[in-house]
Computed example of a mutant assay.
Amino acid sequence: MKSYKLSEAEDLLIGKKGTKERDEYEFELKLELPSGAHLQCKLSQLQNIDY
């Protein structure tokens, strides 16, 4: 199983920085949980995906 850095997984699953989808994703992160808990949740979800 290959491991990915968070930024690599976000690029693959959401899109590269500067794309509409990635901008919306990052905007939602800032709105929903500024504490970073949302990132931790996303990271744990990404760790459960088989590549």
Rank of each mutant, 00 (worst) to 15 (best):
L6T: 05
M1R: 08
R22Y: 06
L31Y: 12
Y51I: 14
E21I: 03
E32R: 04
A9S: 10
L39I: 11
L12S: 05
D11N: 15
R22Q: 12
E26M: 07
D11S: 11
D11F: 00
E10R: 08
T19C: 03
E24P: 04
G15Q: 02
L12V: 02
E26Q: 12
Q40L: 11
S44I: 03
I49Y: 01
Q45R: 06
E28P: 09
D11T: 09
E8F: 05
A9G: 00
L43A: 12
E10H: 02
E10T: 00
E21W: 12
L12T: 09
L33D: 15
L13V: 07
Y4D: 07
A9P: 02
E21H: 04
Y4N: 04
E28W: 12
E10A: 05
E32H: 00
I49S: 09
Q47I: 01
K2Y: 07
G18P: 01
A9Y: 03
K42F: 02
I14E: 00
L31S: 14
D23C: 04
S3M: 05
D50M: 03
H38Q: 08
Q47T: 05
D23S: 03
E24M: 12
K5M: 09
L43M: 14
D50R: 04
E26A: 10
K5H: 10
G18T: 03
S7K: 13
D23I: 01
A37K: 11
K5L: 15
K17R: 12
E26K: 10
E21Q: 14
S7W: 14
L43S: 11
G36W: 01
K30Q: 15
G15R: 02
G36Y: 05
S35M: 04
E26D: 15
S44D: 01
H38K: 00
R22M: 09
Y51L: 13
K42E: 09
A37T: 06
Q40R: 15
H38C: 01
H38F: 08
L33Q: 15
E26V: 08
G18A: 04
Y25D: 13
E21M: 08
